[in-house]
Design a binder for these strands. Structure first.
Lengths: 214, 214
DNA sequence: GTCTATAAATCGATAGAC
DNA sequence: GTCTATCGATTTATAGAC
């Protein structure tokens, strides 16, 4: 029944953890502007000033949510491929498989990323940095793939990274909108097409992308 | 300097047109929840109750904006390809070229589509319908392409339609976020890869997709 | 068609008691 | 660490004059 017990005093870190979870839900559902501090406070089972005791204002709250989720996600992927050197295709496939288990997290990023296009949005700079960072991570992975002959050397890593991120973002939107859309199956179809095409493994060999190795 | 002339009386349709333009700007910048009627009214140069005289409430306003922009866009594409039968590739390329000239319109759809994931959002049903409709339009175009041997018959039209829409949506987001991202160039790269791959024109012939014709 | 005035609710944030 | 009380600003929407 999870009744609210007013005035119950919790240790700082535990309460902050509760708040982050509740805020993540709320912001995922209605975005930054559509969510009130009272919304979040009610979910936690605390008063609205009680909420502001832990995070000084609304902006600090949403930034804390985004950054905490980032850390968890990054840590997960680092652990999953520890000591390995996955191809972009494997890496993105794993990411998608992970995302499909966390629709709320995906929605948080889909909703707030679009909202943050406004330069006055509290997470504007955050998403500017986030996209550049992710593009870099994926581009580097593509370069490694090229060195192994998995892609033609003519492929532009930054460009392909943008395309792959775009594909994932767009599929996530449709998946959230109409869950029967099977985003990981569609991603895989695209990735296979990529690997089998003129810029992929087969094409790369044909075009000389793997000559260094042989 | 376009000063506001208070109390100036305009014909109904003209004022409504002004309002739609101003509202489109505002909603594109800050979404539905982030935009106040006073925002829009100020842009038009009218009082807030004066605005509500033309559209009874905020929900009616945003729906009017979305539907009007839809009509204009649909009409443009219909005219552009009147009497022709463009391939999906040509059709999407033209659409992207059009979009790149209208960042504000793209932003309106990017921002409100994500926001509308909330079932309580005023445009929730609108976007549910919009995505199904667009997917259908593109899927039908893919079927026509298959009949002409431009794609392998093994390709799932609905699935490929979802992928292409996803790619465009995602590229638009990155383009809006970091304008140096050249969304039409990246789209073209993807489309060429598609046409040159095992499911595209070449592959389709190899796999028998064009045998009916020859 | 447009305005002023205003109702009624909600918002983010602060002050201060316990 | 949490609460009640409250301020001040903002929000959507309505009433009624011109």
């Amino acid at each position: 029944m999870a009744e609210r017990i007013e005035g119950l005093r919790l240790p700082r870190t535990q309460r902050r953890q509760q708040i982050l979870a509740a805020a993540a839900q709320a912001f995922a559902e209605t975005g930054f502007h559509g969510t009130s501090l009272a919304d979040v406070a009610t979910r936690v089972g605390v008063s609205q000033p009680g909420l502001l005791h832990h995070y000084p204002n609304k902006q600090a709250l949403i930034l804390a949510v985004l950054e905490e989720r980032d850390e968890v996600q990054t840590h997960y992927l680092d652990e999953l491929f520890r000591g390995q050197d996955p191809s972009v295709v494997d890496w993105l496939t794993a990411l998608c498989a992970r995302n499909v288990e966390q629709p709320e997290l995906v929605r948080l990023y889909t909703v707030t990323a679009a909202e943050s296009l406004d330069p006055a949005h509290p997470a504007h700079e955050y998403f500017q940095n986030r996209y550049q960072r992710i593009r870099g991570v994926i581009a580097r992975r593509i370069v490694l793939d090229q060195e192994k002959g998995r892609f033609a050397p003519t492929v532009d890593p930054e460009g392909l990274a943008s395309e792959l991120i775009a594909l994932m973002d767009g599929l996530q939107l449709q998946w959230l909108m109409q869950p029967p859309v099977d985003m990981c199956r569609l991603l895989e179809a695209s990735l296979q097409r990529l690997a089998a095409g003129p810029d992929g493994a087969v094409g790369a060999v044909r075009q000389g992308g793997a000559r260094r190795d042989g």
